[in-house]
Amino acid sequence: MKIYKIFLLFLFISSFFFSAQSSQKILLDKLFDQLKKVDDFKTAQILEKKIWSVWHRHPSNNGLTEKLEFGAELMEYGSYDYALKVFDNVLVTDPKWSEAWNKRATVYFLMKKYTKSLDDIDKVLEIESRHFGALSGQARIFIKLQEYEKAIVSLEKALKFYPLFKSGKLLIPEIERLIKEESI
């Protein structure tokens, strides 16, 4: 009887978790559908903020959301090593949360550990292929590494999901200019 109760409790908890993840995915799908169709920057920016808001909330664990916020705050104040430990802890608890990988990738970028950052960005994109923030970060690393064609590819991927993505629209012509200068 005790095993049966534990099994029922497990089913209840897992169904809650999958339900929360599912509702978050449905919301993101809806927001990305709108983002693809919008034709003005103001509306696009509002949708972008909503998407970031969803990404920053863990689907079922408020404690992880709070840890992510704490790590982001540490990062903002330049405490990269401590922020890295916080994000490592979050990822041990939930390695399927794309935004935790994205935040750790950002810390690695700020620490100039570009290979580690790119590895984490790959994880982000495995989980959430539409993550325009990760794609933009990937492009910025490729620019630093002078791999300009790869940078353009990353930004073009972001523009497929977010056609009015300001960062992509501004960076691509700049990268093309760098490629021309390099070939002279």
Rank of each mutant, 00 (worst) to 15 (best):
F165Q: 01
E69W: 12
S15F: 15
H58K: 03
I3V: 11
I141T: 05
R104S: 03
D88R: 09
E99F: 10
E126S: 09
V38W: 00
K36W: 02
I141K: 09
I26Y: 09
F16C: 07
F132Q: 02
K42L: 00
T106D: 04
S22K: 10
L64G: 04
K85Q: 12
S129C: 14
E69L: 12
L135A: 01
K116E: 11
V124C: 01
S14Y: 10
Y80G: 04
D120E: 06
D81T: 12
F16A: 08
I172P: 04
I172C: 06
W97P: 00
L27K: 15
E128Q: 14
Y77G: 09
F41M: 04
L91H: 08
K49N: 09
R104E: 01
K67R: 10
S98E: 12
D33E: 11
F7Y: 15
F16S: 07
H58C: 03
F165C: 00
F161K: 03
Y108G: 05
R177K: 15
N89C: 04
H56Y: 14
L64V: 03
G63T: 15
L170K: 11
K49G: 04
L8P: 02
P59F: 10
I172A: 06
F109W: 12
S136G: 12
Y82C: 11
G71V: 04
I6K: 13
E48R: 11
N62V: 10
P173H: 11
K42C: 02
Q146D: 08
I13P: 00
E69S: 15
I51N: 02
T93Y: 12
K103H: 13
D39C: 00
K157S: 05
F70V: 05
K50H: 04
I141Y: 10
A151G: 05
K5V: 14
L159N: 02
E174A: 11
K157F: 06
N61M: 04
L110M: 13
L110F: 12
F41T: 01
A44C: 00
L110G: 06
I175T: 06
D39W: 01
F70Y: 15
S53Q: 09
V90Y: 08
V86S: 08
A83R: 06
P163M: 01
Y108P: 05
T65L: 00
E174R: 12
Y77T: 13
D40S: 03
S15H: 09
L35M: 11
L145Q: 14
D81P: 04
F12A: 14
E99M: 08
K144H: 12
G168T: 03
L159A: 02
I51P: 01
E126R: 06
H58A: 03
F17W: 15
A44V: 01
Q146Y: 12
W97H: 07
L64R: 05
K2V: 09
H58Q: 03
V38D: 00
E176H: 13
I6C: 09
D40A: 00
P163T: 03
S129G: 13
M1L: 15
S129P: 13
M1P: 10
L178N: 06
I127N: 02
K166T: 13
E176I: 06
N62D: 14
I26K: 09
A134N: 08
K50N: 05
K169A: 00
I184M: 07
K67G: 02
L178R: 11
T43L: 00
S154M: 02
G137M: 07
F161G: 03
E174L: 12
P163H: 05
V38C: 01
A158P: 00
I179S: 04
K144V: 09
A105D: 05
K96Y: 14
L91R: 10
D88H: 10
